Simulated assay, not measured.
Amino acid sequence: MHVEQLTAEFGGSRQVGIGVGPVLEKFQEVSRIVVLRGGGLGDLIFAIPAMAALKAAYPGATLTLLGTPAHKALLAATESPVDEVCVLPFAAGVRPGEEDAAELDAFFADMRGRRFDLAVQVHGGGRYSNPFLLRLGARHTVGTRTADAASLERTVPYIYYQHEPLRALEVAGLAGAFPVDLEARLAPADGVVPPAVVMDDDGGQPLVVMHPGATDPRRRWPVERFAELAAACAADGFRVDVVGDSSEQQLAEEIVRLAASSHVRSLAGKLDMGGLVSLLAVAAVVVGNDSGPRHLAQALGVPTVGIFWAGNVINAGALGRSLHRIHAAWVTVCPSCGIDVTQVGWTAPRCEHDDSVVASVGVQEVYEDVRSLVATDTGRQDA
């Protein structure tokens, strides 16, 4: 696409460079930026590079995230580009839950009173999120858009199969922000103290952290595979901690039971966000499905082994392989009914079955990567 075409495409804004996509002229006099990104931990982490780019492009601006309570807890426990988190009210397609019209009206009145200069939508295709963003009353708006979504001042097409951090960086480019990092970088915040349950080991042996959960149960590696891996790691003398929220306690406890080793324990449901950050930060390797804790470990600079459905590799897989290994299952149909599982997103058909689509990933190859990364981590610590 030529510069003249881009100028017409983006409402007369001049292209000033190429990032993930076109980087357009910056907006003038931007001192207050708001970013809309609900969803889970992974969804937030995918947006961190875009927010870092926006902060670099507008260094004097404050950046407010409209997110979830979990996002607020994570950003309180880490150093990030975000200055403030405002928790989203329940709203269709933005934050699931029972809407309260009065609460929504009060929220938007508060947001409009803040007089944001730039509002950035990295929440999805825009069917629900673009009208939500427009109600904030910002002077400028940028974001993604499907054909049926309300238009913003500058938009890029939302096509499901795109790496999520790069998608958000493409949106940031519409606001004149060049990439600073291609993937999220976080660090534990000052004053985040590991809880006693994290500190009650002497740390003499490498720690492998496992997370067996995922929002979509089809993305979960079978418990038996995690247990076999945990037992193998324990036999090598590694400590193994299995993590998860309270809804994942049963998964974690079953892994501990099947592994049958004193070196394997469950911390599921026992850690707050600061505790999870503290634990992941001291791990030698984190093993997980395509889920928030694995993405968080990667952002903290911890080596990871990820178990992914092939389609999710496109959207969420780590870009590098020196510290992050990926094992992909090339399943394209539901194991029970044969429906095409590659059709994803809001309008995709979804059968009633929750069969794992990553069950074909073998334990041995995951174990070999864990051993390799533990050796790398140990060597780096000893150097």
Rank of each mutant, 00 (worst) to 15 (best):
His71Tyr: 10
Ala234Lys: 07
Ala310Pro: 06
Glu368Tyr: 09
Glu153Phe: 06
Glu98Lys: 13
Gln364Tyr: 14
Pro69Ser: 13
Ala184Asn: 06
Ser356Gly: 06
Leu44Arg: 00
Gly67Leu: 03
Val85Lys: 02
Tyr160Asp: 13
Lys270Tyr: 10
Asp290Thr: 02
Leu36Lys: 01
Asp340Thr: 02
Gly275Ser: 08
Thr146Gln: 13
Thr304Tyr: 01
Gln121Arg: 11
Val180Cys: 07
Pro335Ala: 10
Val357Gly: 03
Tyr161Ile: 12
His263Met: 14
Met111Cys: 04
Leu24Asp: 08
Met210Trp: 00
Asp43Val: 06
Asp382Lys: 12
His327Met: 05
Val85Glu: 10
Arg321Leu: 12
Val85Asp: 10
Leu36Trp: 02
Ala310Gly: 04
Gly38Cys: 02
Ala316Tyr: 12
Thr62Lys: 12
Gly60Phe: 03
His324Cys: 09
Asn312Arg: 05
Glu9Met: 13
Ala53Lys: 01
Gly362Gln: 14
Ser336Gly: 09
Gln381Asn: 11
Glu98Pro: 03
Pro81Cys: 12
Pro194Asn: 07
Ala70Gly: 12
Ile48Gly: 01
Glu170Ile: 04
Thr141Leu: 11
Val361Asn: 08
Pro69Ile: 11
Ser31Asn: 15
Arg265Lys: 12
Val374Gly: 06
Val34Met: 04
Ile18Glu: 14
Lys55Asp: 09
Leu251Lys: 00
Leu373Ala: 00
Ser372His: 12
Tyr58Ser: 06
Pro165Ile: 06
Leu300Cys: 04
Val180Tyr: 05
Ala149His: 04
Tyr160Pro: 05
Gly176Arg: 05
Ala231Ile: 05
Glu228Tyr: 04
Val30Ala: 09
Ala57Gln: 08
Trp330Tyr: 13
Val193Glu: 15
Glu4Met: 14
Ala318Lys: 03
Ala57Tyr: 05
Ala57Met: 08
Ile33Trp: 02
Ile314Leu: 14
Leu75Ser: 07
Pro335Glu: 09
Thr78Gly: 06
Cys334Gly: 08
Gln364Thr: 15
Glu153Pro: 06
Leu229Ile: 04
Asp200Arg: 10
His295Pro: 03
Glu254Val: 07
Gly275Tyr: 01
Leu296Val: 01
Gly320Met: 13
Val120Gln: 09
Gly244Ile: 00
Asp369Glu: 14
Tyr128Trp: 15
Val94Gln: 01
Tyr161Leu: 15
Arg114Leu: 13
Gly213Tyr: 02
Gly97His: 04
Ala184Lys: 00
Val302Leu: 02
Tyr161Asn: 13
Leu323Glu: 12
Ser322Gly: 09
Cys233Val: 09
Gly213His: 03
Ala214Asn: 05
His163Val: 07
Val142Ile: 12
Gln250Met: 08
Gly288Trp: 02
Tyr128Thr: 12
Met51Glu: 08
Leu41Met: 14
Val23Ser: 06
Gly275Met: 00
His123Trp: 11
Leu267Ala: 07
Ala168Cys: 11
Val87Asp: 08
Cys337Gly: 10
Asp202Tyr: 08
Glu170Ser: 15
Arg139Lys: 14
Val30Phe: 01
Arg135Trp: 07
Arg185Val: 15
Met273Tyr: 00
Val341Cys: 10
Val85His: 04
Arg371Phe: 10
Ala329Thr: 03
Leu41Asp: 05
Gly288Glu: 00
Gly306Ile: 00
Phe132Asp: 09
Val208Arg: 03
Gly40Arg: 06
Arg350Thr: 15
Ile159Ala: 15
Ala56Tyr: 04
Leu66Phe: 09
Arg114Thr: 13
